[in-house]
Design a protein around this nucleic acid. Structure first.
Lengths: 107, 107
DNA sequence: TCTATAAATCAATATATCTTGATATATGCG
DNA sequence: CGCATATATCAAGATATATTGATTTATAGA
């Protein structure tokens, strides 16, 4: 798929918009903390992260079995304009739950 | 649906991207000329025009039974950034066929 | 090597969107 | 009014995308 349409397609989902907003506010976050914070089933979250990554919005850094996702930087013009829009949306953003740091993470 | 998501959703279709590009290049065009130029079935074209209009990309002016569509101006920031992207896409744009002006239009 | 865990992928189903042909609406004109 | 034409809407089927639970992969540690 063409790059622009791929970006648009990635943006065309409330779940992914929520993920982008969450990562913009909270910065680099590991998958299991995203799961806990956004109360999302693992396969669902993983799928959306992949779509956002493939569309150029996210980067991943792996440390052992953990994967840390964050907003890719720099974003190109269109993607960063989109992100600016997302920053202004009236979204009810759940708080960050860091289960990764207290051994609570037993998915 | 929220405004941003509605814009994104409207952009998320190759047919609508083609329509936007065509109207950007050719300016205000009536539906039957769009039909002839883009070789699109009437109900399909009408549907996509409605989606683009409802998402704030297009305006319509009606003269008698004819409807003239054009890119709405001014566009807000995100929409105009999107349009700029569309202007740069490597699209094979069909030529304008003005069947409206020679009585050729008998849909 | 074996086990446990984090994350990714798969398969089935559910849901949304697109396309087409048929029908409805609206305007102009005899 | 009644017909013709331009456009809009509807209904059915086709296609794409999302969700869920199950399975697979990969890494760390015993």
């Amino acid at each position: 798929m063409e790059v622009f349409l791929k970006s648009v397609s990635a943006l065309n989902d409330e779940t992914r918009i929520l993920i982008l907003r969450f990562l913009d506010v909270n910065g680099e976050t590991c998958v299991c903390d995203l799961q806990a914070s956004l109360e999302m089933i693992q396969s669902r979250l993983s799928r959306h992260l992949k779509i956002l990554k493939d569309a150029g919005f996210l980067r991943v850094e792996r440390k052992g079995t953990w994967a840390y996702y964050s907003i890719r930087s720099p974003l190109d013009r269109f993607r960063s304009e989109a992100l600016e829009e997302i920053k202004c949306l009236p979204i009810e953003l759940p708080p960050l739950r860091k289960i990764s740091e207290n051994g609570e993470c037993k998915i």
